[in-house]
């Protein structure tokens, strides 16, 4: 129930007469209501609708979803897991940035610091690393799920393409991150990887030089990979994930066995 001006007046009137604790309660209630207009735990249909509708973060969701789309055996939760992994990677990644330094002489020492002198630094690095590996696998499995359920067919063609872009971004994020520890594994994997690029006709060699900022993997390459890894690619990823979710809603939610008609146009839900 929304607070009316009248109720606020009575609340103010009472404040003069009543104790500090009841004043505080009113104050707290006003603060709380300014944040969440529709009370605590929603219990009825109206409250449940408003809870999603009035919250920026929840508003990514539609107010209602089909039962079929909630079946774990249908999606295997893979898209949601990919999203969760991306969030965890963003969080741990920013945290790692406090300790990391993209310098060919310093980067490796920072890795050793994470193991020895930073509190729980090894957990931080390990979570980031395993989440990154998992994300590549989960995104590929999600693509397989979408294919095997025929969920790329009209009207979802465009979202499949957004998905392909997300897959490429995921691979590029993982690949650019690979160089940052600056150990033998990192250095030679990127040396091998970027030399493959140079086999492409015409564009290959310039592309490799552009990525590395020179002829070999060195300080310039490290800075370029770092900027790609912490700014450009995560930024693009966030934008394309937003488009992906927006499109799911414009395509009327997830694919469904009872979908009808071939002239589906989609629309707001």
């Amino acid at each position: 129930m929304p607070i009316t001006a009248e109720m606020r007046e009575t609340a103010r009137g009472k404040m003069h007469a009543e104790s500090f604790s009841s004043r505080f309660k009113v104050f707290w209630k006003n603060v709380y209501r300014s944040l969440f207009r529709y009370g605590r735990m929603p219990r009825d249909a109206e409250g449940q609708s408003y809870a999603v509708f009035n919250n920026l973060f929840l508003h990514i969701h539609p107010v209602k979803v089909s039962k079929h789309s909630l079946k774990f055996t249908y999606t295997l939760g893979l898209g949601v897991i990919a999203t969760i992994l991306f969030l965890i990677l963003t969080f741990t990644g920013i945290w790692l940035m406090f300790y990391y330094f993209p310098s060919a002489t310093e980067a490796y020492n920072r890795m050793l610091d994470l193991r020895s002198s930073v509190d729980f630094g090894f957990v931080l690095r390990n979570v980031h690393k395993w989440a990154a590996e998992a994300m590549v696998a989960v995104v590929i499995l999600h693509m397989a799920r979408v294919f095997f359920t025929g969920a790329y067919k009209p009207p979802r063609e465009f979202n499949w393409i957004v998905g392909v872009i997300l897959l490429l971004l995921t691979l590029m994020l993982s690949f650019t991150g690979y160089l940052l520890p600056w150990d033998q594994l990192a250095f030679w994997a990127i040396t091998v990887g970027t030399s493959i690029a140079s086999y492409a006709p015409v564009l290959g060699e310039p592309l490799r030089k552009f990525l590395l900022g020179g002829d070999t993997v060195g300080q310039e390459a490290l800075v370029r990979f770092y900027v790609l890894h912490v700014v450009i690619l995560p930024g693009l990823m966030s934008i394309f994930i937003a488009i992906h979710f927006w499109r799911i809603r414009k395509d009327s939610g997830l694919s469904h066995p009872n979908e009808n008609g071939s002239s589906a146009r989609g629309g707001a839900t």
């Binding site: 449940q48 999603v52 979803v65 469904h256 979908e259 009808n260 002239s263």
Partner: peptide, 21 residues
Amino acid sequence: GTKPTVGLQPDDMVFTWPHLL
């Protein structure tokens, strides 16, 4: 007009809060 939700009965839909969240 038609869109994928046309085939869905209201009974097939549930609230995001709490079911999806």
